[in-house]
Write a protein that binds this DNA or RNA. Structure first.
Lengths: 179, 179
DNA sequence: GGTGACATGTAACGTGTTACATGATTTC
DNA sequence: GAAATCATGTAACACGTTACATGTCACC
């Protein structure tokens, strides 16, 4: 349930047509969140019904049929974003979701993301520790490993560097959110 | 279409029941690939029909109904894994898929993953360069940035550290695959 | 004999993906 | 006037998720 929110945030940054959104999700937004134009049109339709977004300048009436429709976020949509941003994600894989929330923070913040970041840091620290325990248990000493074990160790190292990189980044981001 | 292959590789490492697999996908395998027991049973059923796997010791006949079923990989399944491992993934987000392939390499390798790794390294270098270009263009000098810009910069930095970490890891893994 | 872990499945639903379809506008 | 891009949509299908359902086995 994050794609509609990613779209809302993209619209907060810049009111756009479905087509524009689709292109944006192939560029900057697409670096950490993907959506095809079919998904986007589907979600825009739903959000229109829910009153989260509206089409700008419908004044033109029926003459403007089959033309570009520019969507903008309504107060209800903005409230939904604020609600969703504060929602707790207990999933360690919520990294990209957190990046979307940061984007909301940049657009309409501050939104109080400190707590969410702290929780994610905790989860990632735990996971890193799990990896380090496995390393100690199964791959130490590093010599005397078979080929298969060296490859398995490489997989584990992938997890370790990834967690370390994320944690280093997160510690750096923290101060930005207290402000 | 990677879940069935993840299951196959897990079965190559150790013939197991659907239940065992489900637990394994909540542990070690689950660190980079997830699957619920419903998915696993569904895929096991399909792979059974396709002749990729078989149930061990069906000799017991109808008496063994509603009991533990241990699956093992048949030659056709092993061939499918070998085929899939060599398949080209042009997607930058194929990181986790590559980790599964590495796991296959550990289990039944060497499988010739050098080329795939080289391609992924190329893709990630390109993406890193894109990020660095954006950094130069939009966030330099680092002072004189608004709050919103500093948050946007943090998002970008997340991408940069993530790409750098992955590339450092990948360069280290390379030599293991030429062997 | 009751509780919890083992073990396998079905059904319904939501989302993402691929293919198909149409028409307007811009550019050469 | 042909081709590329802009622009919006429908339909079918694959996949993942959640809820429901059933029964066994071991242990206390």
């Amino acid at each position: 349930m994050s794609t509609p929110h990613a779209i809302l945030i993209s619209l907060l940054e810049q009111p756009s047509s479905g087509y524009d959104l689709a292109r944006r999700f192939d560029r900057s937004m697409g670096y950490f969140w993907r959506a095809t134009h079919q998904q986007i049109y589907r979600e825009l339709g739903r959000m229109l019904q829910q009153g989260w977004v509206a089409v700008v300048g419908e004044t033109a009436g029926e003459a403007a049929a089959s033309r570009k429709k520019v969507y903008q976020v309504l107060p209800a949509g903005r409230a939904e974003v604020a609600r969703w941003v504060r929602e707790t994600v207990t999933d360690v894989d919520g990294r990209n979701i957190f990046l979307i929330k940061l984007r909301a923070e940049a657009a309409i913040g501050p939104l109080g993301l400190d707590a969410e970041l702290a929780r994610l840091i905790g989860l990632h620290r735990e996971r890193l520790q799990t990896y380090l325990d496995i390393e100690q248990r199964d791959f130490t000493p590093a010599d005397a490993l078979t080929r298969a074990q060296r490859v398995q160790y490489a997989i584990l190292k992938g997890g370790i560097v990834s967690e370390r990189a994320w944690l280093a980044w997160a510690e750096e981001v923290g101060p930005l959110l207290h402000a």
